[in-house]
Computed example of a mutant assay.
Amino acid sequence: MFGNKLSGLHLLKFSWFKISRHCLVKGTSSPDDPTLKEYWLNREKDKSKNLTKSLEKLALKQDNRYPLCGDSLFNGETLHRHHKIPRHLGGKDTYANLQLVHYYCHQQIHSSQKKSILKEEELPLW
């Protein structure tokens, strides 16, 4: 092992790390083929293993799907944690109150909430 005894710093050996192999796509399988939809869904489930444990738990709870549109969480967009009940309204940081959403969907959720709040404030009081 290559390192410094005084500082305790050392270089890591590759043999200390588990090798993770990537599965090759079968034959001429295409994500656009509707008959292979299940095959591609199963391949996408493996992508949740690249997340932190807490985010992986949320993704598995949602079956790796975005709850509103049913699209895959792993479509290349950044993932955000969204509070179903906002924290300023008493929502907690629990798994029951959190869900994973796409970045742009998260922006739309909050912009639509702001619009609905503004509309409520604009209503005349009779």
Score class of each variant (00 low, 15 high):
residue 1 M to R: 13
residue 2 F to S: 14
residue 3 G to N: 00
residue 3 G to V: 00
residue 4 N to K: 01
residue 4 N to Q: 00
residue 5 K to T: 11
residue 5 K to S: 13
residue 6 L to D: 14
residue 8 G to M: 02
residue 9 L to T: 11
residue 10 H to R: 14
residue 11 L to W: 04
residue 11 L to Y: 10
residue 12 L to P: 04
residue 12 L to R: 14
residue 13 K to Q: 08
residue 13 K to M: 05
residue 16 W to G: 07
residue 18 K to W: 09
residue 20 S to C: 13
residue 21 R to N: 15
residue 22 H to W: 09
residue 23 C to M: 15
residue 27 G to M: 10
residue 30 S to R: 09
residue 31 P to R: 15
residue 31 P to N: 07
residue 32 D to G: 13
residue 33 D to N: 12
residue 34 P to Y: 09
residue 36 L to I: 03
residue 36 L to V: 00
residue 36 L to N: 12
residue 38 E to T: 07
residue 41 L to Q: 13
residue 41 L to T: 13
residue 44 E to G: 01
residue 45 K to T: 02
residue 45 K to F: 04
residue 46 D to E: 15
residue 47 K to I: 11
residue 49 K to C: 12
residue 49 K to P: 10
residue 49 K to T: 10
residue 50 N to E: 08
residue 52 T to A: 11
residue 55 L to K: 01
residue 57 K to I: 04
residue 58 L to P: 03
residue 58 L to E: 02
residue 60 L to T: 04
residue 63 D to E: 09
residue 64 N to Q: 04
residue 65 R to L: 07
residue 71 D to C: 10
residue 71 D to F: 04
residue 71 D to I: 06
residue 72 S to R: 15
residue 73 L to S: 06
residue 76 G to R: 00
residue 76 G to F: 02
residue 77 E to Y: 08
residue 77 E to L: 10
residue 79 L to A: 04
residue 79 L to C: 04
residue 82 H to P: 00
residue 82 H to W: 03
residue 84 K to G: 01
residue 85 I to W: 05
residue 86 P to Q: 06
residue 87 R to I: 14
residue 89 L to Q: 11
residue 89 L to A: 09
residue 91 G to V: 07
residue 91 G to I: 06
residue 92 K to Q: 08
residue 93 D to C: 08
residue 94 T to W: 02
residue 97 N to I: 01
residue 98 L to F: 12
residue 100 L to T: 11
residue 101 V to Y: 03
residue 102 H to R: 05
residue 104 Y to Q: 04
residue 108 Q to S: 02
residue 109 I to E: 06
residue 109 I to K: 03
residue 111 S to R: 00
residue 111 S to H: 01
residue 111 S to N: 03
residue 112 S to T: 14
residue 112 S to E: 15
residue 113 Q to S: 05
residue 114 K to A: 09
residue 114 K to H: 06
residue 114 K to I: 01
residue 115 K to H: 06
residue 115 K to F: 00
residue 116 S to H: 05
residue 118 L to P: 05
residue 119 K to A: 13
residue 122 E to L: 14
residue 124 P to C: 08
residue 126 W to Q: 11
